[in-house]
């Protein structure tokens, strides 16, 4: 029980840190890292709820595994978009009216 509690508490703390960081951070990459931390918190809570004493529920485990892959894909897409924004920023950089 204490182990489950520790996992849940850590997961929720990570989620909170992620929410805070995603809103406060000014830089896009920092926001992206914060969103990833948020996701990891959710995964930890899911894994903790999968444990029922002796038996382990495989469904949340499968969800987390799927979630990790989708998170990687989403992060890669966000990084690509960030690079595109940087590129457009470089093009517009000479313009102080922006």
């Amino acid at each position: 029980m204490t182990q489950d509690l520790l996992y849940n508490a850590t997961g929720i703390a990570l989620f909170g840190i992620g929410v805070f960081g995603a809103i406060v951070a000014a830089h896009i990459i920092r926001k992206l890292i914060a969103l990833n931390i948020m996701g990891i918190g959710v995964f930890m809570v899911l894994l903790a709820t999968a444990r029922h004493g002796e038996i382990t529920d495989p469904v949340p485990h499968a969800m987390v595994l799927t979630g990790i892959v989708v998170a990687v894909a989403g992060t890669a897409l966000c990084l690509w978009l960030t690079l595109r924004i940087r590129l457009l920023d470089d093009v517009n950089e000479g313009d102080p009216q922006r």
Binding site: N8, I12, A13, F15, G16, V19, H52
Partner: peptide, 24 residues
């Protein structure tokens, strides 16, 4: 965010565990 986290923690502790229907 701190209030939200505490509320989430509270809900996890209070709700306890549902019966593992899908696991069975």
């Amino acid at each position: 965010v701190i209030v939200l986290s505490v509320a989430l923690m509270f809900s996890v502790v209070v709700s306890g565990k549902a019966a593992p229907k899908l696991a069975g």
